[in-house]
Amino acid sequence: MKMLVVFEKMGAHRFLGHLDLQRAMQRALRRSGLPVTYSQGFNPHLQLSFAAPLSVGIQGEREIMEVPLSRQISEADFLSKLNKTLPQNMKAKAAVLLEDKLAPAMARMGAATYVLRPDAHFEQLAAAVPGFLLQERIPFMKRGKAGMREEDLRPLIYNLMVKDDTLVTVLATSSKGTARADQLFLSLCAFAGIQQPRCLITRTALLDERFAPLEGA
């Protein structure tokens, strides 16, 4: 069995890079004494996989990782033990026992929901949304293995709407294509003709290909 863990990475933890987060989680799991598995070899390390790495600077409300177990443990027990050793403000919110044969969370990813909270120019940005979405193509430059290349953002935006003083968006996040929320914001600002204000971005949910929360599997 493996345990799927939903956790938050909020506040100052948004500054942690993916490797930093991996290390922090590994050490929290080691401190917890939970029945986890280790890789073989001279440098045994704890096996751990994340559904979707989060860019530095973006918060996550319901991030997901999976931990292979060396023996059975209840979801509630796992959750409370892990929460005792996680860094402050990095709470585990749910634990779900899964069969090993279920595809890894990373492979089941389809999309992710983000909430964007800009510091300024909100009216102009909100007004620009309909026109922005009506574009047939939204080209942007992406750094790939072979240098910069142009890509189209439009098919990767499943939804974008204004809600109170925020923008809420659902973006493709899978092996077939991934859009970054900070890229979306950059493109929207360019379309609206404004200089990019500071914007706090929060990833609020990880979804499968049918837009159901990944943890509900």
Binding site: L16, A28, P87
Partner: peptide, 18 residues
Amino acid sequence: EALLETVQKPSRYTGGEV
């Protein structure tokens, strides 16, 4: 906060470690 968003390795400056 705004400054931390612009620098390399912000976790050098935030503390909050276990």
